[in-house]
Design a protein around this nucleic acid. Structure first.
Lengths: 250, 250
DNA sequence: ATGCCCAAAAGTGCATGCAATCATGATGCC
DNA sequence: GGCATCATGATTGCATGCACTTTTGGGCAT
């Protein structure tokens, strides 16, 4: 059953900070572009900058945080293309997951999965934050049932990154259909129909990606510089650029 | 064309150390289980322990290094099962790579790939270290042509981990056939036959994995504790265990 | 001799301090 | 008034120092 979190390598302080930040990001409390100063993190979690810094390094390695030399770290802002690439890989990996899992899940495991979906159902009326977190946890739960440490790690990473994408590109977050898709998937896994499960997963993720990415080249919000890029025809002075960037950041 | 190394986030000192260690690992200068004391690394690279430590953290996040609390970091020693899982994922991802690349490579890119294989050919008589490195670089080169940052990162990580596996489980490293398989793959990519390319890649990786992993449950070498595990029927005293572990480590 | 126990040595975990770099508001010039 | 320049505060980059844990080697009892 491997280690339960796979990424609290050094002590646990670093791991604690990472988990907290991941969760904050997944629930969109920290939006893409949000600043993460080492001091502030250190103070908040009662550790020194050294540890906060280390945690940021880990998250950067996962692609959740962007580290720029001598600049404050920020929550990553995946480009549209990166988001597309991420979903492509996610589809392949999750197809592999359900292929390995089809017909091999215990009753207890199936029950666990269904319990998770029930939770998603309960949270449907509530905040998007919780819905997104639960949906993401469903996929990670699935991955963890493969008991492949590396698969768990990759699926987790990618799922978190997809959450980032969702908060960047997607709107209100229509989770209604997703819940049903999760249910159908569990049924296919139970019946042992690998092909069907793979197909369901494929289309499930496709539709999530589509809701987020298709027909919407507009990154909506966050970085004004990106939004304005297509309009930037006239050359601007350096200070003007600097000012705009600041406005956008805060 | 994205950033060229994807993982020298903080400054470059950390990145430099990471690259050096990755290379040492890939060329089997550092075998699985090799100790990596922070002091030694810091002195060797002319930095403080802080930086060395950070680099180890990054490598641990990539799965190349194992960090145990209050213990000296060591080069990771993947279990047989982990190795199997890694290859499974690798196959899926590299199939995706060639699917995306088939028929879309420029003449220059094809030439680059063929040049790489030529190098492999040249190195055939030489040391295994170089052969393995070149073969690994071929796969990473292929991945980099997708221009998908995340794909490049994952393939690189996995390829490095597979090198670890090879140095653990595989013997002399029979690279002759691999070279030819690389050539055939390039041809398929050039002709635009995605299905064939995917199939070639699949079987190429399968055979690499098989040479490394099949018919050989014996981890050969490294950690005596693991080898002896099946024989450990009689309870042993604490000090005896401690001594054996030391012998194995050094 | 053999095995146990304890003290010195080695190594990690973490905070702090200082230099270097970036950010931002004030100043002066046009 | 608008724009470039510069000084000050904010923030990172990195090394060092100290406490704590593990390792190791030697002495003591058996």
């Amino acid at each position: 059953m491997a280690r339960d979190k796979a990424k609290d390598s050094p002590s646990d302080k670093v791991g604690t900070i990472c988990r907290a930040l991941r969760r904050a990001i997944i629930e969109q409390a920290l939006e893409p572009g949000a600043k993460l100063p080492e001091d502030a993190l250190g103070e908040r979690f009662g550790v020194s900058r050294t540890i906060a810094r280390h945690a940021l390094g880990q998250l950067a390695a996962e692609g959740l945080v962007e580290l720029r030399r001598n600049r404050i770290a920020v929550v990553a802002t995946p480009s549209w293309q990166e988001a597309r690439d991420t979903f492509d890989i996610r589809i392949e990996l999750e197809r592999l997951v359900v292929r390995q899992l089809a017909g091999r899940l215990s009753k207890a495991q199936l029950a666990t999965l269904r319990a998770q979906v029930d939770q998603e159902e309960v949270a449907r009326g509530g905040s998007d934050a919780v819905s997104i977190r639960l949906a993401t946890e469903f996929h990670i739960l699935l991955a963890s049932m493969t008991e492949s440490a590396i698969m768990i790690r990759y699926i987790s990473e990618i799922a978190y990154r997809c959450c980032l994408t969702l908060s960047l590109f997607s709107r209100p977050h229509s989770s209604e259909c997703a819940i049903n898709e999760h249910r159908l998937l569990i049924d296919a896994l139970e019946s042992g129909d690998a092909e069907k499960a793979m197909s369901l997963m494929h289309h499930h993720l496709d539709s999530v990606a589509e809701r987020a990415l298709v027909a919407q080249a507009k990154p909506r919000g966050r970085d004004i510089m990106d939004i304005l890029a297509p309009y930037a025809d006239a050359p601007v002075t350096r200070s003007a650029v600097r000012k705009r960037r600041l406005d956008a950041a805060e």
